[in-house]
Design a protein around this nucleic acid. Structure first.
Lengths: 157, 157
DNA sequence: TATTGTTATACTCTATAACTATA
DNA sequence: TATAGTTATAGAGTATAACAATA
C-alpha cells in the first residue's frame, strides 16, 4: 500500500504520514478550499469572508456595538476599526454614537448594505458548496454538526 | 426558544442566525480554537503551525524540493522562501543545491531538526486536543474522516 | 523559451502598546 | 481607574510581478 500523496512536481510521491489525521492541517486545507469557493462566487464584489460575516451579523443585530461584533467574530479591535471603515466607505454600513455612552460606536446596515446582504445571503452561507464536492448532503450536515459541537457553538440544546 | 448567542458585553444576546450552519464560519472558529491549543502546547518553541508542518514533511521526505513542499502545503513560493530561511537560521533545516538541476533547492532536517520533530510529534499532531474538548474520541475520528473526504485527502482507500 | 527560486512591493490580518475620550 | 475605540508599529501570510540562473 503506497503512502498518501497530495500533489507534486517531483518524481516520487510525497509522504504526509499522520499529518492527514491532524485536525489542524485538515482544517487549514479545508479553509483554502472554502476560500477558493468564496472568491469564485462572491469575489466580484470585492468583499472577503470576514467582511461578509460582519455585514451579516450587523444585519441581524442592528445597532450592535463595534466591540461586540469584534468579540463575537474573534476580530481584534484594531483590525475591526479598519474593517468597519472599509464597509462605511463602501456605503454598506453606518456608524452612530449613542447618547448614553459616547465612547461606543453602534453599527447598522445602510439600505444598500441590507439589499446586498439579502441578495447574496444564499451564496454566502455556502449553501452552494454542494456543486460537485466530495460530500453528500448528509455528510455535509454531519460535518457541520460536528464542527458546531467542536467549536462550542451549539445554539440552544 | 432563544436565538443562538456566542459571547457579548452587550445587553441582548447576539443573533448569528444561519451563520452557525455556514461551513466557512465554523471552519474559521475551529481554526481559532486549534491555534490557541497549538500555542498553548508548542508556543514556547517559537514555531507556528505552518512551520511545524514544513518540518514534518521535510522529515518524511528528506531532500524534497522547496517548491514541492510549497505546492503540497499550499504555501506561496515567495512566502516559502522566507519560511525556509527562518528554519535554516534556527538550525533545524539545511539547504542543498543538487548537481543535476542547479536551480533547485533541496531541503533536509538537520540532526537538531530531526530531534525536535521526533520529540514534539505527538503534541503537534493534535493527539492532545482531547483534553476536555467537546468531542468524544469517536466523534473526533468522524470529524477528521469527513474533513479528509471534503479536502480530497483520502489517502489510499 | 520555460522553469526554479528569489527579491520587491503592497495589502490583509494579527499582536501590542500608547493614546483619546469618555465613564 | 477602568472602558471603548482609535492610532501606530511590527510581523506573518498572501498576491503579484519582475528578476537571475538554469534548463
Amino acid at each position: 500500500m503506497p503512502d498518501d500523496a497530495l500533489q507534486t512536481t517531483e518524481d516520487a510521491p510525497i509522504k504526509l504520514g499522520e499529518l492527514t489525521n491532524g485536525l489542524g492541517f485538515l482544517i487549514r486545507i479545508a479553509q483554502v478550499k472554502l476560500f477558493e469557493n468564496f472568491f469564485e462566487h462572491l469575489g466580484e464584489y470585492g468583499l472577503k469572508p470576514g467582511e461578509f460575516t460582519v455585514l451579516w451579523v450587523i444585519g441581524l443585530n442592528p445597532g450592535l456595538r463595534q466591540g461586540t461584533v469584534a468579540n463575537t467574530l474573534h476580530i481584534k479591535p484594531a483590525h475591526m476599526t479598519k474593517l468597519t471603515g472599509r464597509l462605511v466607505e463602501r456605503g454598506l454600513v453606518s456608524r452612530a454614537t449613542p447618547a448614553d455612552d459616547r465612547r461606543a460606536v453602534r453599527l447598522s446596515l445602510t439600505p444598500e448594505g441590507q439589499k446586498f446582504v439579502d441578495s447574496k445571503k444564499d451564496a454566502f452561507l455556502n449553501h452552494n458548496f454542494d456543486e460537485k464536492e466530495a460530500l453528500s448532503p448528509e455528510e455535509a450536515e454531519q460535518l457541520i454538526s460536528l464542527l458546531r459541537k467542536f467549536t462550542g457553538l451549539n445554539a440552544c440544546p
